[in-house]
């Protein structure tokens, strides 16, 4: 990125060809190198007080998620209760960052969370496929924003992205970003989901990251959780490099959210190590890094309790969802 300057970014979104020239001019990702670096960072041993701190940080970073066709307001309320007090027996256990639900569940979540400080994130824009007309996607977004969602998780149109219609994807993100505005309140934060499992190459992940950041994303997010592979360590590493370079260039910090497939505390800690090494400690904060997960929280709680009590915890002592 050394050759780029912030002046280079001014006109890149002016036309389809300028945008393509810019995205395809980004340096290619060394796939073997990225995999090897992610694997190497995953071997770090995090123990004792560092582990305790990492577990608490990871809990604070969780976007506790339920995105199923069978969701009900009752289930969302239960999830909210868990987000606010993840370990009911231990008041020192921090709350999660947010709960992540479908737009029609936002009112139930907003009501249940009240003034607890736990945010409500809603997936919008015809999640998870993103296959709908733009006005439907905008209506979906506005619906969630008006219901009080603090954060919107949108999906990009992978079909358009993979066929090289970058400007279309860009303009869609810009339009959704505008729909996140609220008249008397702060706008909802926009997270842009790439579904990296469908993007085929790390080069595409890097291009999608830059595209979303140029379009005004507040967060870039790996996956919907509906497609495998979802959030892998190397993919998240490529995205962390992109946000690091973007901040160096523009001064604007963007958050990263891996989602889907992170189930154990051990994996979560590997992500934190990677974030610290690639982005730096600035990103080790729930405002800048999140985990989209549901079962991960239980494992974090079990590990946390193991650190506190000295014996291994059991599955009978945490909730099923």
């Amino acid at each position: 990125m050394a050759t780029l300057t912030s002046a280079d970014l001014t006109d890149v979104t002016a036309s389809e060809s300028a945008l393509r020239r810019f995205l395809h001019g980004l340096p290619g990702v060394d796939q073997v190198g990225a995999d090897a670096r992610a694997a190497m960072l995953g071997t770090r041993s995090i123990k004792t007080t560092a582990k305790t701190a990492a577990l608490d940080l990871a809990i604070r970073m969780v976007d506790l998620t339920t995105l199923e066709g069978m969701d009900t307001p009752g289930k969302v309320r239960a999830l909210c209760a868990k987000a606010m007090r993840p370990d009911p027996m231990d008041p020192s256990c921090p709350a999660t960052a947010a709960v992540c639900v479908y737009p029609d569940m936002v009112p139930a979540a907003v009501e249940a969370l009240g003034s607890s400080g736990v945010h409500v994130a809603a997936v919008a824009t015809a999640f998870p496929s993103g296959r709908a007309a733009l006005d439907i996607k905008l209506a979906d977004t506005q619906d969630a924003v008006e219901a009080g969602a603090h954060e919107i998780d949108m999906v990009i149109d992978r079909g358009a992205f993979l066929s090289g219609r970058y400007l279309e994807v860009y303009e869609e993100i810009v339009a959704i970003k505008a729909a996140c505005a609220r008249s008397e309140d702060e706008p909802a934060h926009l997270k842009v989901i790439f579904e990296t499992g469908e993007l085929q190459t790390y080069d595409n992940v890097r291009r999608a990251s830059w595209l979303a950041m140029l379009a005004g994303a507040d967060f870039i997010k790996t996956s919907t959780g509906k497609i495998q592979p979802a959030a892998t360590l190397p993919v998240t590493l490529v995205m962390m490099e992109a946000v690091r370079d973007f901040r160096a260039l523009t001064g604007t910090q963007i958050g990263v959210k891996p989602a889907g497939g992170i189930r154990t505390a051990k994996e979560a800690i590997k992500f934190l190590v990677m974030v610290n090494e690639v982005g730096g400690p600035d990103w080790l904060d729930p405002d800048w890094f999140r985990f989209g997960a549901s079962t991960l929280l239980n494992d974090l709680l079990m590990q946390r309790s193991k650190m506190k009590t000295g014996h291994y915890w059991g599955h009978d002592y945490v909730t099923l969802d």
């Binding site: 000295g310 014996h311 291994y312 915890w313 059991g314 599955h315 009978d316 002592y317």
Partner: peptide
């Protein structure tokens, strides 16, 4: 002792 105190046993 680890097995005896393990809550999943």
């Amino acid at each position: 002792p680890w097995l005896a105190s393990h809550l999943d046993v």
